[in-house]
Design a protein around this nucleic acid. Sequence first.
DNA 1: GATCTGCATTGACGCTCATCAAGCAAGCTC
DNA 2: GAGCTTGCTTGATGAGCGTCAATGCAGATC
Lengths: 248, 248
Amino acid sequence: MNDLSSPLHSLKVTCSNCSLRELCLPVGLNRDEMAQLDAVIRQSRRFKRGEYLFRSGEGFRSLYAVRTGYFKTCVSSQDGREQVTGFHMSGELMGLDGISSNTHGCDAIALEDSEVCELPFSRMESLGRDIPSLQHHFFRLMSREIVRDQSVMLLLGNMKAEERLAAFLLNLSQRLASRGFAANDFILRMSREEIGSFLGLKLETVSRTLSKFQQQGWIRVDHKHIQLVRPEELKALVAGCSQANSAG
Amino acid sequence: MNDLSSPLHSLKVTCSNCSLRELCLPVGLNRDEMAQLDAVIRQSRRFKRGEYLFRSGEGFRSLYAVRTGYFKTCVSSQDGREQVTGFHMSGELMGLDGISSNTHGCDAIALEDSEVCELPFSRMESLGRDIPSLQHHFFRLMSREIVRDQSVMLLLGNMKAEERLAAFLLNLSQRLASRGFAANDFILRMSREEIGSFLGLKLETVSRTLSKFQQQGWIRVDHKHIQLVRPEELKALVAGCSQANSAG
DNA sequence: GATCTGCATTGACGCTCATCAAGCAAGCTC
DNA sequence: GAGCTTGCTTGATGAGCGTCAATGCAGATC
């Protein structure tokens, strides 16, 4: 299973005052380049649970990298239907969809008290011209988002409820593990309804499927506290959908 | 309805020998920059119906722009399930998902005899450093692909079969119209099964839904020949799903 | 023209998941 | 602690779409 959802190379979330380049920008910059980057990155901003980082339709100026906390992004239709397009944890980038039209194309909402770094896009763009490896990294980040989206399409277009949920849990597990957290014991930061919206299911189906997994002894569920008891069984469920377990 | 699926600004398909920059690259380059671009773009290559432009897993070197013809891109899982991730007509770019891992992440297959231009990516990248507007245009192209993918997620996650198919037909119509073709009378280049794979439906459901639309007098269906008789009714079906009618 | 093959249509049936509804637990406010 | 709100679980029911199967149509091949 490849980590398509955390597109960041050098990931260290252990220090509390780490600068952005440690969070989500590539190693391989020299000291001068680092200084240039530091000059562009804005101080981090804090958001309380439920606050909007940006809204669909707002002017686009910056990308945002999660430093701490948890966000969801979602597109909503005029009649109120909402589709969660992703959950974003530390080190991940949001706002890439805003570049095309200079307008944000989705909402980004904090799922818990969170902190982000702001990357003014036009300055990053011109910095990329001076630092080829930085430019290349940005292309890779955007491409990785496209790959992730494709795997979500496969999930939504081809998989059954159980497979979707198994893929979702495994993906969370793997992203948490890559950040140094426990892979098989974690807290969901989102509601059943938000999970359902992301997976194209109703909240009742999410709830029932979690219960079913628990009855089979594959996981343990205590509200938002999830333990993966037999992750290999979950993997067997999504086996064959190699592209699909990177949904995040 | 905005044209999220044809991310190309200056689109002229009228001349038969048009160079790539007229197909999919921005105006606003001076003569010298145009010459640089021409030096990078490879001669176009031809593909017969059914041939692969690239395959998932192959090394990534170039992006490809459709000059004439029609392609589909699809991801497939190990157990053979296939998800069509997009249909691509003249002026559209394929291969962006390959940048992240230096490996193509999907298959691209010609749906009819077709012609593409090859854009060696690393040379485009370095050219972008010299020509800021070109660099910016590439970021926009990639962002637009992300926006398109998000609207497909909304379609797959939230919409019913009729809504999906209506959105699909309207999107095709609109992309053809923007290329100077008839908006309400066109030939489908893909099979019912491929449409179904893209929309997360089975081919029988696609067929039945087309028949239903025809019975209601909204469209006329004669095999691959489609006429939109009352497109406003289709629009009413997807009304409220503003993000979703850009599925391509 | 006869046959073959691939694709599309249509019908019958059944499964998955959405819907509706009731009840429960945890966290608020007062 | 009572009462409210919010989110989750669980059950009953049915709609929508998938599955299986039969048939039909059109173009390709000989």
